[in-house]
Design a protein around this nucleic acid. Sequence first.
DNA 1: CTTACATTTGCCAAAATTTGACAAGTCAAA
DNA 2: TTTGACTTGTCAAATTTTGGCAAATGTAAG
Lengths: 96, 96
Amino acid sequence: MESKFGERIRTLRESQNLYLRQVAPLLEMDTAQLSKIEKGFRQLKKEQIPILAKVLKADQKELQTLWLADQVLDLIKDQPNADEALKSVSKSIKKK
Amino acid sequence: MESKFGERIRTLRESQNLYLRQVAPLLEMDTAQLSKIEKGFRQLKKEQIPILAKVLKADQKELQTLWLADQVLDLIKDQPNADEALKSVSKSIKKK
DNA sequence: CTTACATTTGCCAAAATTTGACAAGTCAAA
DNA sequence: TTTGACTTGTCAAATTTTGGCAAATGTAAG
């Protein structure tokens, strides 16, 4: 599946010697779900990012960025003209 | 709602003096749906872009790019760090 | 004002997708 | 061969998206 966000939170979790079993309940899910999230098979709800950032003592902004990049990547994968579309989007948001 | 894709196909349709009633059946939908698509309340299925490009004598690549940009824009709107996430995605796809 | 016709809007149920929960599975260490 | 961490598969529930219809709106003509 491939997920930068998932890889990152797994690294963070492991570096703090936390088990899925310990983290999952704080996000109100079971270990199976969190495992899938770390492997990129499921998405964490964006509202849960701040909670996870706190639990993992991570920078919330970093996780939000990784999370969003994963979503975008998933959307555009296999799409033609993806790079051009991205450029145009970048312009659009700068105009806001 | 705001949709570059919708605005574009409406312009194309009108410039050729076609009615929703004439175009919608070619996409196997009713006028209400196509109206919503042009106004950005609904999304055209990406598989239908080539059909529409042909009907409207438009450049398929142009429509695909507009369509994808709309999808991305919808995904990232109101998200923090959107520009940073986009940058990172651009890098990712160049590595493929 | 009435008709005609293009478009829009609102609503609801059907279809599709995502999610949550659980059970069973793998794997490594002891 | 037992234990504990993690993974995988399945299935129904929940959520989101879609399709279709009917009624509303807008506009131009008669």
